[in-house]
Structure formats: C-alpha cells, structure tokens
Design a protein around this nucleic acid. Structure first.
Lengths: 70, 70
DNA sequence: CCGCATTAGGGTAATTAGGGCT
DNA sequence: AATGTCCTAATTACCCTAATGC
C-alpha cells in the first residue's frame, strides 16, 4: 500500500525522492543539506542522499515506524 | 468512502492531517507526542507520524474500523 | 551546438511548534 | 487533569529565474 517513491534496494536517493517520502519541500531538504544536518553527496549538479544518513536524520530517538520504511 | 485528509499512499503524515482525522486540536496531538502516547519523528521543525504507528495505535484501542482505513 | 527537461537557489508569504492562560 | 484558544518566534512552502546535464 504505502508505496515508496524509490526502489526498495536503492542505496542512494535523490532530493525529490526523499522529499516525497517525508512530505517536505525539496527546498527544505536542500536547506538541511546546506546546514549540514543532512549529509549528502553532490553528483554533478544534483544531490544524492544515502539511506543510512537518512535513517540517522530521523532516528534521533526511537522511531519504530521508520524501520519499516528505511 | 470517507476521504482521508492525506494522500492514500502516504507513509508519513503531518500533525495537522492526523489532527483532522481524529478531530482534535493539533496542540492536543503534540501533547500526545510529548507524552509518548503517539510515536512521532521530528524532521527539522515539524513532526511526522508514521502510518504504521497510527495503525498500531488504532488497533490497540480496539478500533478495527479505523485501522482498516489506515 | 542547440533546445528540452529537471534541479538548484533566492526572496517572500504562510504555516507550525511551543508556552502561558482559560 | 486535559483540551482549546491566543500569542510569538522560527521554519517551511510557494513563487520565480538561472544553471546544468542530456
């Protein structure tokens, strides 16, 4: 049911994909990257976010629901 | 047939959306989050509630109908 | 090399979180 | 004790244009 906006086996996600998953504006996500809150790698012009770093971002505390998705 | 206040396939919901679903003030819901009654993930400034957690909560409260919708 | 499509980045208005009070 | 309303500060979303890659 709750389809992921990216392949389940993907290790690196685009800004757009992460934005869709968490329902935030891509711009906000780029702000997090600029602020160093969300680690990301620049590939050419755009950004790639690693799944592990994404977990770390949201899993500051216990997040049962997060494990199901990431 | 009841329209949900959020996209059908969304994995994460905003406080506002869940508040509309339960028909409570967003502030009340944030209090539930603070109290640990409702698991949630903080992304930047905002909170996101996992759909799975919401299902679990509904099921735990013997609310099969709601759990089905979620 | 040119045009098309997509993403990044800037500025501004709107929304949210949190505290105090009822 | 718990919920809802009012208020403020900070963050976010929407608008646009420029830049990059294909």
């Amino acid at each position: 049911m709750t389809d992921l906006p990216f392949p389940t086996h993907a290790s690196y996600l685009s800004v757009k994909e992460v934005a869709e998953l968490f329902r935030v504006c891509p711009k906000t996500e780029r702000r997090w990257i600029s602020a160093g809150v969300l680690p990301a790698t620049r590939l050419g012009r755009d950004w790639r976010i690693s799944r592990n770093d994404l977990r770390a971002l949201a899993a500051g505390r216990s997040n049962p629901g997060l494990a199901h998705v990431l």
